[in-house]
Design a protein around this nucleic acid. Structure first.
Lengths: 337, 337
DNA sequence: CAGCAATATCTTTAATCGAAACCATCTAAA
DNA sequence: TTTAGATGGTTTCGATTAAAGATATTGCTG
């Protein structure tokens, strides 16, 4: 590979001058700059990010922490879409993305150690167990960190506006005349808490009593749970007229459970999902759900990350940014009988 | 950050000895090794991958090329799943994954240049336009490259066995008694070609004439196309009794099109998908499709990659590896009337 | 068994990777 | 003479490694 040394030799100047010329420092003559750049192009010079990063302490590399229990963070459409959007924005500014795991070969490194090892300039954390000690340790480091859907004092965060999402869904159902609304909810900490809180609030505001038996803990993206719990709900003497699911996948599974009882989703039991994954829009009846704005979540995360790596001071009020979702009105919510 | 220098000072030996001790060279005394390792642990030493890579020319970093036209390679479940599996295997051997794009900040680098810049040891190429000049240029470099679902002289490849998949699906449909089978196919080069070839072969073997009007070019993962083309097929005077789609998403969309004509999938028109994405198993009627073995595709790709980066000679016969899919028998194929 | 070379074992010195930064130097214009 | 502008020398980042050096151990001879 051709290095600045070769260019220096070619142009009869020192490596220092070449370096400065290529980095457009103003203490190099215009003619020399031109000569150096021409030679660089002619010889097919490519900078070596390793050497540069070693010297400057800036790798232009962002770590991505995205590991769920099943090692399949990427397979969740929601997070994959966010990552895609984040990636595009970061690349635009010269940053590349490297996955962070908790081992490097045989030796098991902590996430933090892995970040130090790879000299990442910052970390995007999404779809991981935020309560894990290892993750917390990473957060308490002074690495720039942007977390998705998780708020903490130590990180900047971009959060899908779950209160608002639940509010939109619920008010929609209430307007349709539903009162006995069940909620099968997910299993993480903050997102679920925000949604549950909003659920109780909205119900309260509309003088609807929350039947505690209608609140069922489940897991995200686990259709089996959703199926089972739906059946449980339908067995209640005074069964709910509307069921809210933690995500679209669960909602689809819920619909199957409803049909398995000889009932029809919408007409007999209304169904609401969450996420707005593309496939759902194709199904008839279209699922009523909230489309989370993955594009702008990723974009905002990138915006925050860039400010962090540039050591900008970020005012407290901007350290947590919310992204509103959009109510997708499908056909799975109808006026109850 | 603590470096080998600090450890050297702490232990009263040279940095060379520290380096060797940590790398378990056999020209360092056992006692010294022990002392150095203890100090390293105590001081919280972490090697610096940049420095190491700069010197050794091995970054333990693999580039991932996965960029479709919409910048959304990650959002295709099939490729995301392969990447996940590949990632796990590579990390097990100490390799990290970095995305490769065609620019670094403002300057637009070619994929190859980006790889040089980041000093990746190899590249996994999946879900890109393999015919693009830029991709071909990368392939003709002497970087180790493993491509997914694309065979070329220059790369090792792992390929989902499309001939076999189509054969399994088609023979299944033929056994059920279908003769007028339509095929809405995808838009890439090799995969589609393999599938079309297999389609014609199998039909030929069973003395079924291929109605050219039943072969419709579409795009992968494009439900709109699939919907439209399905309607076209259903309008034929002698309409197909069974339609094969390029992927599950298209198949679902096709089902909707069938229903929109007042027909029922399975009973009136049988439907077959391809991919076996998890969501499909939850829908009733379950989609008859081929589940592609993403887990072992990723694993095999990692296996090849590791051999390549270790400069092992790979015999011609092993440079292309096939992964068999599995027929998932759903309820969308029934005996035609 | 002393004496000394040969060998084995362990450690250090120093160069190197490619780029950047600090500091020094030199030239030409003011 | 001063000063700004242009350029070069050298060190540095953190690690690896070849080669050289130091020390200890062994073998052999008379």
């Amino acid at each position: 590979m051709v290095s600045i040394k070769d260019i220096a030799a070619e142009c009869g100047v020192s490596t220092a001058t070449v370096s400065k010329a290529l980095n457009d420092h103003d203490d190099v003559g215009t003619a020399t700059k031109e000569r150096v750049r021409e030679a660089a192009k002619r010889l097919g010079y490519m900078p070596n990010s390793l050497a540069r990063a070693l010297k400057t302490k800036k790798s232009y590399n962002i770590g991505v922490l995205m590991v769920d229990k099943a090692n399949s963070g990427l397979q969740h459409h929601y997070f994959a879409a966010i990552l895609d959007s984040f990636k595009v924005e970061m690349e635009r500014s010269g940053y590349d993305l490297t996955f962070i795991s908790s081992h490097v070969g045989d030796s098991s490194y902590s996430y933090y150690e892995h970040c130090m090892y790879r000299n990442v300039d910052g970390v995007l954390a999404a779809c991981v167990d935020f309560t894990a000690a290892e993750v917390q340790r990473l957060f308490s480091s002074d690495l720039p960190i942007v977390s998705i859907d998780y708020i903490s004092d130590e990180t900047c965060a971009v959060v899908s506006d779950n209160e608002r999402g639940i509010r939109d869904l619920l008010e929609y159902a209430l307007r349709k005349g539903h009162k006995r609304i069940a909620y099968i909810y997910g299993d993480d900490a903050q997102v679920t808490q925000a949604r549950l809180k909003a659920f109780r609030e909205v119900m309260g505001e509309h003088q609807c009593e929350v039947n505690e038996a209608f609140l069922k803990p489940a897991k995200y993206l686990n259709p089996t749970d959703a199926y089972r719990l739906t059946l449980e709900l339908l067995r209640e003497e005074s069964r709910p007229t509307c069921i809210l699911y933690p995500d679209d996948i669960c909602a689809v599974s819920g619909i199957e459970a409803i049909r398995s009882c000889g009932l029809t989703e919408g007409r007999d039991v209304s169904v609401m999902g969450y996420d707005g994954i593309p496939l759902m829009q194709m199904l008839r009846p279209g699922l009523t759900t909230i489309r989370q704005d993955t594009m702008s979540i990723g974009r905002k995360a990138a915006g925050l990350m860039l400010r962090l790596v540039r050591k900008e001071e970020i005012p407290q009020t901007e350290r947590v940014q919310y992204c509103k979702g959009q109510l997708l009105e499908g056909k799975t919510v109808e006026t109850p009988a």
